[in-house]
Structure formats: C-alpha cells, structure tokens
C-alpha cells in the first residue's frame, strides 16, 4: 500500500499558548519501502507518526492511503513504551490485534505462535510479561504488530529504551522479518546508525516546529547487518546525515536552555 502525506501541520494548545509542533510535512512512501524519520528530540516525530496512525487529527493537511489493500488493517503501530499489557500472557498480547478483528482463538494462537517463534519467544508463550526482560517485551510488541498483517507498520523508537547489545540484535531481527514480509515501514528514531542500518530512505526533520529538512536515499545494498557499520560507505553516510542534522540538534538544545532561563 502506498501512503501520501500532504501538508501535515499540527498545533497544540489554544490561544496564546498555541504552538506549532509540525509544519507542512509532505512526503510519499512506496509499497514495501522502509522509511526512517530522524530528528532532534521534541521535533514532532511521534506526533507525525500518531497522525499517520489515525490516533490524532492533523490541524491541516491529510494522509492518503492508496493501492492494494490486504486482509489486515491499514496500519499497526509499535509504541515507544511497547504497551504490552501486563494482565495478559505473552500469546494473548501478541494475538490482541487478531482478537480485536474477531479471529477465532485457535486460529489467532496458531498465527501468534508462528510469530513468537520468529522473535525467539515461543517457549514464553504462556508466561506473563512481567517475568520477561524489557527487550523481550519489545519483541512481543513487534510480533503483535506484524501478526495482524498490516499494510503499513509504524514504529516509534521501538528500541529506544534498550541496551546497545539488545538493540543490535533486535534491529537485525527486524530486518530479517521485514525482508521476509516486505512490509511498508515507517520507523521513527533519533539514532543515526539505526536509521542507516534499517532504512531505504531517511527523512530528516528540523527542530520544532518539525519540517522536512531533506530526504536522503541510503542506497546501501541489502541484506544489511551491524557489521557494516565500519564500512566506508556507512561512515560516509553517517557523516553526511550528521552534517544535516547537527544544526537542528543545536537549535533544539538552545531552545531547551532558552526555556529553562524563562
């Protein structure tokens, strides 16, 4: 499925306190493409993703989905704070989206178990999430999103709270699952290496109000894995992106200190 964002703008607050979080964001994403969105903290990345997910209305602009619709929902989102329900066991969490679609229990367990195998958690299927680590819970959230077979997968810094090693492993796992399913993915991150490793294209956002600064094609051959991080083309790309985003990060930091002084 193809997705087009046209002039997305979002204001928060009312009257004098009204502030613009994202401003005039327009872009297209092709079927099967992995798009990363990179920007300084507080630039409205999450807001943009929430608008695309339909969890929030834009102040102006529109989101247009077009093309082939498959059996699943239009989008499934993996949240920053994974949002795995502690009151359900692992498999019921993974099957939650299917349950909401009315898939019978046996069927949704079969499908969920299949995805649990893929993220290496099948033997924890009937355990409770609080018995597992944060990394494992984030894998549950990813399996939950994939298993509904959405046309577009939205991921909001899903690995942000993980330690570096776990993050590397999950990034590679995600790449593997993605290459098997060729889903359209929008992946929000503030980690340059993560964006290069995962993305086909990279959308760089300015500091708040977030606008599109530029869209960079990563152009590194797939399949990719973390060992590529020391290759010249990876390092060049990292520099290229850092040069693009550096001024935005500095601006964001100045705004922060400015606020602190007020």
């Amino acid at each position: 499925m193809k997705l087009e964002c046209r002039h997305l703008t979002k204001n928060f607050g009312e009257g004098e306190k009204e502030t613009r979080i994202i401003s005039d964001v327009s872009f297209e994403i092709k079927e099967g493409e992995f798009l990363c969105i990179l920007g300084p903290s507080g630039c409205g990345k999450t807001t943009l993703l929430r608008i695309i997910a339909g969890l929030m209305e834009p102040t102006f602009g529109e989101v247009i989905f077009s093309g082939n619709k498959n059996s699943g929902p239009i989008n499934s989102m993996v949240f920053q704070e994974h949002g795995v329900f502690p009151w359900m066991n692992v498999i019921d969490n993974v099957a939650f989206g299917l349950e909401m679609q009315g898939v019978p229990r046996k069927e949704r367990y079969t499908q969920s178990l299949d995805f649990l195998k893929r993220v290496g958690l099948s033997k924890y299927a009937f355990r409770n999430p609080h018995e597992l680590s944060v990394g494992m819970r984030q894998r549950i959230a990813i399996a939950r999103a994939f298993v509904t077979n959405p046309a577009i997968l939205l991921m909001d810094e899903p690995f942000g709270s993980l330690d570096a090693q776990t993050r590397l492993i999950l990034q590679e796992e995600l790449l593997k699952i993605w290459s098997e399913h060729k889903k359209t993915v929008i992946f929000v991150t503030h980690d340059i290496d993560e964006a290069i490793l995962l993305g086909d294209r990279l959308l760089v956002m300015t500091s708040v109000p977030g606008r599109i600064k530029e869209i960079i094609a990563i152009g590194i051959d797939r399949p990719r894995d973390s060992r590529m991080e020391s290759t010249p083309e990876f390092i060049n790309m990292r520099l290229r992106i850092w040069n693009s985003i550096r001024s935005e990060v500095e601006k964001a930091m100045q705004e922060d200190t400015g606020d602190a002084e007020n």
């Binding site: 929430r50 997910a53 339909g54 969890l55 929902p73 989008n75 499934s76 989102m77 949240f79 920053q80 704070e81 994974h82 949002g83 329900f85 939650f96 989206g97 909401m100 679609q101 509904t148």
Partner: peptide
C-alpha cells in the same frame, strides 16, 4: 499507551 494500543488495533 494502553488506550493507544487498543485504539490502534
């Protein structure tokens, strides 16, 4: 986030 998840699915 639990409401977001429920709504999203």
């Amino acid at each position: 986030v639990y409401f977001d998840v429920a709504k999203n699915y």
